[in-house]
Design a protein around this nucleic acid. Sequence first.
DNA 1: TTTTCCAAGATTGTTAACAATAGATGTTAT
DNA 2: ATAACATCTATTGTTAACAATCTTGGAAAA
Lengths: 226, 226
Amino acid sequence: MNSAPEDQIVTSVLDAIAEQRLPAGTKLGEQALSDLFGCNRANVRRAFAALAAQAVVELRPNRGAFVATPSPEEARDVFQARRTIEDTVARHASGKATPEDIAFLRRAIREEREAREQHDKPRELRLSRQFHMRLAEIAGNKVLERFLSELTMRSTLILGLYGTKGRVLCGDEEHGEIVDALEAGDTDRLRGLMDRHLRHLEGGLQFDSPPPSHLSLREQLLTGQS
Amino acid sequence: MNSAPEDQIVTSVLDAIAEQRLPAGTKLGEQALSDLFGCNRANVRRAFAALAAQAVVELRPNRGAFVATPSPEEARDVFQARRTIEDTVARHASGKATPEDIAFLRRAIREEREAREQHDKPRELRLSRQFHMRLAEIAGNKVLERFLSELTMRSTLILGLYGTKGRVLCGDEEHGEIVDALEAGDTDRLRGLMDRHLRHLEGGLQFDSPPPSHLSLREQLLTGQS
DNA sequence: TTTTCCAAGATTGTTAACAATAGATGTTAT
DNA sequence: ATAACATCTATTGTTAACAATCTTGGAAAA
């Protein structure tokens, strides 16, 4: 649609975050990105402003732009919001899925399992996100779709920070059951499965181990003095 | 918190939209705003990018920034999203309201009625919005709070475009009943009242009369040719 | 009078240079 | 050897000038 020079930066950064190629706290230098995308720093700056408005990038004055590092409280809020929004998505998607939709979802599940078996985590994450976003698309509400896009993005960051490595991220059997219920038009079951799926995802987080510190050396040492 | 020069632009524009001082389709010139806020155009540009990311401003290449003019479809999506989010807000706010919260809400209702009697529409709109936002604050989810902030903003634009003038915008008796249910801790009733309130609001829209055209003279005349 | 075309003005988009600040390196004194 | 200090570099923030585009207005032709 809009091929403005800054939109490409936004989508590229979002894609990178969605595939966990950009971990939380990564510094995004203006020069680096302007070189990479062959544009001037003003466009990079505008892209940062848009990304900051979606809370996937944090802007620190005179320091620069950093990939956001969600706190445990933010993680809770994000998943609570996801349950809210994806419940409505489930309600409205139920019975509206075309055969193409079902085929797409089943293919995504299959490829996601393949990616997991091959330990291709970026691909797995991308496919899992596509699964949820397709459901929102079927529901047919652009506003909720955009909100969920932001939330899945932040979920990826949260999983990268607090996810227990050994565990399965998005159990493909759960996704499979969801498609079954969607195809059958069983709204209540669909809603229940989705809720369970999201609680499962959130339940796998561990907030105790690493205090997410992405501070400069100086800030890490000087704790709370001028 | 953050007193960056561009943040002031963002909040000022949002406030103006929330009070319907900036109607949908208004052009926002870069020079005009940079003069007004005593900063350079680069900051205005960044503010526009942030506002566009929240869908309250539309960016047309080589034309400039305009206050968004939501279509009837967008209006439907916005109110559906509001019902979704404010239902969760109601669920989580119920029983959590402090006496100060209740006092604030009752005062907002009273002042809103006064503003309506004095035909002070900006004030009325601002207070009505504050009422809903305070509920979100009580619920205690920053993500949903931010989403609702965007949605109430766009609701104001929608009411300005499609609202039937004679009708009452937000019946204060409805707000009153909501506070009663909140204070009583009657969650189910609170949810029901909120849903009814939002459906009431949406039901008062009329999409037939004015095709929302905020085009230049040239665009209004030359319909669909190069 | 109406339409078409062209030119002037205004606005947006881009770029580069400069200023200000933070982070890092090196030096010196204790 | 360590800590405090100064300097140096890299990065962000600001500004102004220039280029490109759109809008406006009027003149010329039908």
